[in-house]
């Protein structure tokens, strides 16, 4: 079936148009995860410290720390991973402080975001950019 140039251009043009339209059905998975945690509330940029290496020795085991005095829980999101959720720390009545350490997997260089929910219902956010590298011969 022969397609005229006009038809092809029309097809191409409309495809480009569709690609440029915002697609509300595909909202960012990272934003979704954060919204589910905060209910859309504002997040302060103080009150939560996220400590992570600038360059990860290996993406499979990256040590990170959070500290959020007065927090009830802290959620960690890896914005560049196939799935953003990493873990959520919950501090109970007998927690000595709101400091926690763990090791996470990162698929590539990305921002890791921490969101803290405070006892008073407010939220705080911190992020760190971690470079995840390709090794030498060892991979």
């Amino acid at each position: 079936m022969k397609i005229s140039r006009r038809a092809t251009l029309a097809l191409g043009g409309s495809a480009a148009l569709v690609a440029m339209l915002p697609l509300p059905a595909f909202a960012d998975a990272n934003d979704d995860a954060i919204a589910a945690f905060t209910g859309g509330a504002e997040m302060a940029d103080t009150g939560l410290t996220l400590t992570a290496p600038e360059i990860a020795e290996n993406g499979n085991t990256v040590p990170i720390e959070v500290d959020a005095p007065g927090a009830v829980s802290v959620m960690i999101i890896a914005t560049g991973n196939p799935n953003p959720g990493v873990c959520t720390f919950n501090f109970g009545p007998l927690a000595g402080n709101q400091h926690a350490v763990t090791r996470i997997r990162l698929a590539g260089t990305q921002d890791v975001v921490a969101v803290a929910k405070m006892a008073d219902g407010s939220f705080a956010k911190a992020s760190a950019n971690i470079k995840v590298t390709i090794g030498g011969c060892g991979g």
Binding site: I55, E57, N58, N60, T61, T133, G135, G136, C137, G138
Partner: peptide, 24 residues
Amino acid sequence: NMIRADHLSQGQTNGFPVYRLKTT
């Protein structure tokens, strides 16, 4: 020296068996 992003060692084996972060 660096090979890509790996810091090359002398390839010593005094640390074996070794827990590799890559393979966990």
